[in-house]
Nucleic acid binder design. Structure first.
Lengths: 133, 133
DNA sequence: TATTTACCTACCATGTCAATCGGTTTTTGA
DNA sequence: TCAAAAACCGATTGACATGGTAGGTAAATA
């Protein structure tokens, strides 16, 4: 599996926030209920989005979350990269991991590189606005 | 990660067999040494390729493996599907798994379907012959 | 008949995923 | 001012996949 629930849930939260994007704050409890996702699990996913400056989180009574940009300004690729950590289809391309010894003579590496480009381009082509009804 | 070592090793074995494809049988011990892969681990991967009629396995002294077709006639997609089981990028598309309740109203499903098509088309476009030097 | 090879089954160690539990801090509004 | 609501934080857990090892059996040939 390529995309885990972390990334998929993050996308659904962003879409939900976009569909209730009237400037007010949206409590995560509401989103969790609407999307039928455990609130506690969502709380583990959201900090990545706040840290990445995608959304703003306001603590305290009456608080909640709010988009920082218009829905058109969020690329799916950015959201997935923040929450999934890495979209590389094979370990060979995972920056940070030990580079493969055989890379120089590897017959398949060029194909993986090409696939990586294809997938990233694919997700670059979608914005949150595209995913809204 | 999308493609595990199972699929990547299977591809490397197929390429190795193609590069030593003179009609004779190739012992898996040789391939394991050349590719620097544990023989025992390879033995776990190969039955799927035999069962899928991609290669022929001959037991006994002097035995080994041999391609059933020309390298041009093997699509990468076929090899990966046999060894990885499923190339679906998200659980929602995994045939056999319980279908998602929200699929009718899901905002993201069309994107996953499109991605799945893109990836499959990508791997359809490569053959073993393309990957040989 | 001994050797070589494919073939088969069980096991294990590690890591990730998905989720839960139990809290603490911040802020507001009653 | 104080209690409620919300974001924030960390430890733990069960299930599962991955990558690999170990120890065989069956078949075929030199």
């Amino acid at each position: 599996m390529m995309i885990s629930t972390r990334g998929r849930y993050a996308l659904r939260v962003m879409i939900d926030l976009a569909e209730h994007n009237d400037g007010s704050l949206v409590a995560m409890r509401e989103v969790a209920e609407r999307q039928n996702i455990s609130l506690k699990y969502l709380e583990k996913i959201l900090p990545a989005l706040v840290k990445g400056n995608l959304i703003e989180g306001v603590s305290g009574k009456g608080g909640g979350y709010r988009l920082n940009r218009t829905p058109q300004a969020y690329r799916v690729s950015e959201i997935l990269r923040l929450t999934e950590g890495n979209l590389a289809p094979v370990a060979c391309l995972d920056c940070g991991a030990a580079p493969c010894q055989r890379s120089a003579e590897c017959r398949t590496l060029p194909m993986w590189v090409e696939l990586n480009k294809t997938v990233n381009a694919f997700f670059d082509g979608y914005t949150i606005a595209d995913l809204m009804k």
